[in-house]
Amino acid sequence: MDGKTQLGDFLHTRRSRLRPEDVGVPTYGERRRVPGLRREELALLAGVSTSYYTRLEQGQSPSASPEVLDAIAGALRLDESERRYLHDLARAGRRRTAGRRPAPERVPDATRQLLDVLGHVPAIVLGRRTDVLAWNRPGHALFAGHLDFAAPGRPAQRPAMARLVFLDGHVRDLYADWPGKARAMVGHLRVVAAQHPEDAAPHALLGELSAKSAEFASMWADHRVRACADGTYEMRHPLVGPLTVTQQTLSSARGPSVVVATTEPDSPSATALALLPQVTGESAAPGDRPSVAGRRARAHAEGD
């Protein structure tokens, strides 16, 4: 994935979505052949020359300063996630990046302990490209109970939530508003790809999804950007029926993220979620999980 190309495509799509009347640009009743602002109009709003903005959109001027990028972000009416994404793309375009094998992602002991403490709260630990690095019993039962619970412990067989959302019929059917969940996933992957341009793994996943899912390819071309901190989804679980959960992402700058699912207290959704361990026959007790020392030994033996 070329950072310069992505930067130009992102600027172009955002410029094409702005109507002149949205930003106070007079049109004097003229008919326009293409939607959105013209390059010269956007450049004027941002306080840069048309030629400079054109070169930036064409990927020929990767050295834009943070101040110029902020000015362009303001002219494009970008939100905070989109503004950060614009800066990440510009940084990626300023340096040559070569795909490399990333270091194996590990689950810190503190994160393992958090899974244990959460007990009956569904939780999963996700890596950069949404690989499931670990999950507790409720998290497994809620999000992917049809898969082997031990799969995250085998690096070569770890499921990736992005792949499951787009390519797994069971997970797709879990979400009443699947397109909304899918768009959120695509927006998250855009953020990750821009933040880690040197990491080949997320880009390989993007290529796979683009080849196997026309819906993913269409959503990716839309250049939606979203940092998935939280979202509320109506789920249709095959065992406990419909429930509404809030999925919250606890992020760490130096490690994987933890996604937890909660429901409104004393709600039908809370009742359904409480039934999940019973109907699956899975215990959420911490004692069912290997000790930290045991997990260290296993991880060392597997070379993960």
Results as ranks from 00 to 15, higher is better:
residue 36 G to D: 04
residue 34 V to W: 07
residue 185 M to E: 10
residue 285 A to H: 15
residue 28 Y to T: 01
residue 250 L to W: 13
residue 260 V to W: 01
residue 43 A to L: 03
residue 267 S to F: 11
residue 140 H to F: 14
residue 215 E to F: 02
residue 241 G to H: 08
residue 21 E to H: 15
residue 5 T to E: 11
residue 102 P to V: 10
residue 285 A to I: 00
residue 15 R to H: 09
residue 40 E to H: 08
residue 144 A to D: 00
residue 7 L to A: 06
residue 77 R to Y: 07
residue 206 L to P: 05
residue 32 R to M: 07
residue 56 L to V: 15
residue 200 A to K: 05
residue 179 P to S: 09
residue 43 A to V: 04
residue 49 S to R: 07
residue 12 H to E: 06
residue 14 R to D: 04
residue 83 R to C: 02
residue 55 R to E: 01
residue 26 P to R: 12
residue 201 A to D: 13
residue 60 Q to Y: 11
residue 109 D to S: 14
residue 68 V to E: 02
residue 148 D to T: 06
residue 69 L to T: 06
residue 59 G to N: 07
residue 154 R to I: 02
residue 108 P to K: 13
residue 214 A to W: 02
residue 284 A to N: 06
residue 208 E to P: 03
residue 151 A to P: 02
residue 220 W to C: 05
residue 194 A to K: 01
residue 231 G to P: 00
residue 146 H to M: 09
residue 199 D to K: 07
residue 58 Q to G: 00
residue 213 S to L: 09
residue 110 A to G: 05
residue 151 A to R: 13
residue 198 E to Q: 14
residue 232 T to W: 12
residue 115 L to Y: 07
residue 264 E to F: 05
residue 224 R to Y: 02
residue 183 R to L: 04
residue 302 E to F: 14
residue 147 L to H: 12
residue 62 P to T: 04
residue 172 R to S: 02
residue 99 G to L: 09
residue 261 A to P: 00
residue 295 R to Q: 10
residue 251 S to K: 12
residue 283 S to Q: 09
residue 114 L to D: 01
residue 11 L to T: 03
residue 116 D to T: 13
residue 210 S to H: 14
residue 191 V to N: 04
residue 45 L to D: 06
residue 193 A to Y: 03
residue 234 E to W: 13
residue 190 R to K: 11
residue 101 R to A: 14
residue 301 A to Q: 12
residue 61 S to W: 10
residue 7 L to Y: 05
residue 218 S to M: 10
residue 185 M to I: 07
residue 156 A to E: 15
